[in-house]
């Protein structure tokens, strides 16, 4: 009961309150609503701390059991400990903490993501084919937007209109229609999931076990 039922009742009470407070601007409701938001931020902070500690535990176990590539786990832990010590000893304003962010985290993280430029080029060459009418539509729209959204599009004209004009129209109308349709679907889906959480139908966030 304390392991599953009470947490679900707790979720129902908190969730239901947060729905109805939207419609009742009473000072008492407002005060509780503010309190819930304050608590939510602190709890989420703790969740993030625990999540990072779980990652530390994962690497410690790999090192203890000498799993394949455990030396890389040692590197990861060394990086983590150095950064934490830099933050604690030198503070978060400037100093080694900021230096490590500027010259290690920033270049490594941005380089990692920049690799995608190469892979998106290779993948487009291999997979972006006009195999059917719908695939051709996707291809043509993609190429027009690709060219229309850079200055080159202003110099290429089709039927008296520049590719920039055509891409602007595509983005403003057919694209907006597609994105709006998806957005409305997502909105309904999110609402249904939120209701299932409050009503105790969706319980996966509690984890497995009783």
């Amino acid at each position: 009961m304390f392991r599953r039922t009470i947490p679900l009742i707790f979720a129902f009470v908190v969730g239901t309150f947060m729905v109805i407070q939207f419609f009742i601007p009473h000072p008492t409701f407002q005060a509780i609503y503010n309190g819930v938001l304050d608590w939510q931020q602190v709890i989420f902070g703790f969740v993030l701390v625990v999540g990072t500690l779980s990652m530390v535990r994962h690497h410690v176990i790999r090192i203890q059991r000498k799993k394949e590539g455990y030396r890389y786990s040692m590197v990861a832990l060394l990086g983590l400990v150095s950064m934490v010590l830099a933050g604690i000893i030198g503070g978060i304003r400037g100093g080694p903490y900021k230096w490590m962010f500027d010259y290690i985290q920033m270049p490594a993280q941005s380089s990692m993501f920049s690799l995608l430029a190469f892979f998106v080029a290779s993948a487009s060459y291999r997979a972006f084919r006009a195999r059917s009418v719908t695939a051709t539509l996707l291809l043509v729209a993609g190429v027009i937007v690709m060219l229309g959204r850079v200055p080159a599009g202003e110099y290429i004209h089709v039927g008296g209109l520049s590719l920039t004009d055509i891409s602007t129209w595509i983005l403003d109308y057919p694209n907006t229609a597609a994105k709006r349709g998806i957005l409305i679907g997502v909105g309904l889906g999110m609402t249904a999931t939120a209701l299932k959480i409050i009503l105790g139908i969706e319980t996966s966030y509690l984890g497995r076990g009783d």
Partner: peptide, 20 residues
């Protein structure tokens, strides 16, 4: 890759602990 994982986790941990 692992330097990035470690250093980023360290950076985040300090921010989480300090802010929360």
């Amino acid at each position: 890759e692992h330097i990035l994982v470690g250093v980023s986790a360290g950076y985040y941990l300090v921010q989480y602990a300090y802010s929360a």
